[in-house]
Amino acid sequence: MTTAALRTRGSVFRRRVSGPLGLGIAGLWLSLIVLLPLAAIAVKSFDGGWSAFWSVVTSPSSLDALRITVLVSIAVALINVVMGTVIAWVLVRDDFPGKRFVNALIDLPFALPTIVASLVLLSLYGPNSPIDIQLNATQPALVIALAFVTLPFVVRQVQPVLIEVDRSVEEAAASLGARNSVIWWKVVFPSLAPAVLSGAGLAFTRAIGEFGSVVLIGGNIPGHTQVASQLIQQQIEQDSNQGAAAISLVLLIIAFVVLFVLRVIARRSTSREAGE
């Protein structure tokens, strides 16, 4: 078969996959896996009507849990934006012994059961801490646990973009006498900004729904270290499925709004950079 014929068959296959058949398969799968469960949560949260939903999400325990969850998640996202970008820079721009091992280590939180991470952190920072640092049942413990499970989201978003950055522009700026800080903020960071924002959004949304990594080290103290996911578990244990669904719906709304806003900002940043 000739090359032209192979290309023709390939283009026909792509049109078929990306046409009505591919769209139908994608829509069906998304409906079964994403849309229907989300719709079920929304319907369940309003089982008792709007008043029941509102009373649950505005109760003191819910407001405390949501406040702690959002504030801790923001702190975690900001920390990982800085540290994740630094780690991505080191992995891309520096050569050192064990670089491949460190690169593989970044993905460990994806594979490790999060409750195991909570157990390890409790052993390290708990009452019998081998390094004499006791953080269990404190908000810093929540930050450490959530930073552990969300770090890969920032690193893996920034790393491939950093690989594609044209170093010749940096070299030209350096040859003209630009300081390293100026090169970073004026040349490098604008290219990384969309990836950094995307990583921050993913880290934040993962943090607000995280349960396993905080279940042991967090302490689950209402009004102090109880996060929304633990309150949801408490509602389920009290046979209040409607309450659990209502709090879950609030988390979904927060996650959607944050991701949407960051996507819009990242898109505008990309368009501005392309226009320049």
Results as ranks from 00 to 15, higher is better:
M1N: 06
T2H: 03
R7V: 08
R7F: 02
T8R: 12
R9G: 14
R16V: 14
V17R: 06
S18H: 09
G19E: 13
G24Y: 11
L32T: 06
V34Q: 07
V34D: 06
V34P: 13
L35G: 06
P37D: 09
A39L: 13
I41E: 03
V43W: 14
G48P: 13
W50G: 10
V57Q: 06
T58Y: 05
P60I: 10
D64M: 07
R67N: 09
I74R: 03
A75E: 09
A77I: 05
L78C: 00
I79Y: 09
V81D: 00
M83Y: 11
G84H: 10
G84A: 08
A88M: 04
A88G: 03
W89P: 00
W89Q: 00
V90P: 08
V90A: 14
V90D: 10
V92C: 02
D94R: 11
D95M: 00
D95A: 03
P97F: 07
G98Y: 13
F101R: 01
V102D: 04
L105D: 01
D107P: 04
L108K: 07
V120A: 06
L122M: 12
L124Q: 12
Y125K: 04
Y125W: 05
N128D: 15
S129G: 10
I131S: 14
A137G: 11
A137N: 12
A137E: 08
A141G: 08
A141L: 09
V143Q: 07
V149W: 02
L151G: 08
L162R: 01
A174K: 05
N180R: 02
S181Y: 08
V182M: 05
V187L: 07
V187A: 02
P194N: 00
V196S: 02
A200P: 01
E210Q: 01
S213A: 15
V214A: 04
I217S: 02
I217H: 00
G218I: 10
G219Q: 11
G219A: 10
P222S: 14
S229C: 05
I232D: 04
Q233A: 11
Q233C: 01
I236A: 15
D239P: 01
A245T: 13
A245V: 15
A246E: 15
S248I: 11
L249S: 13
L251E: 12
A255I: 09
L262W: 00
V264E: 06
I265P: 08
A266E: 01
R268D: 05
S271E: 14
R272W: 10
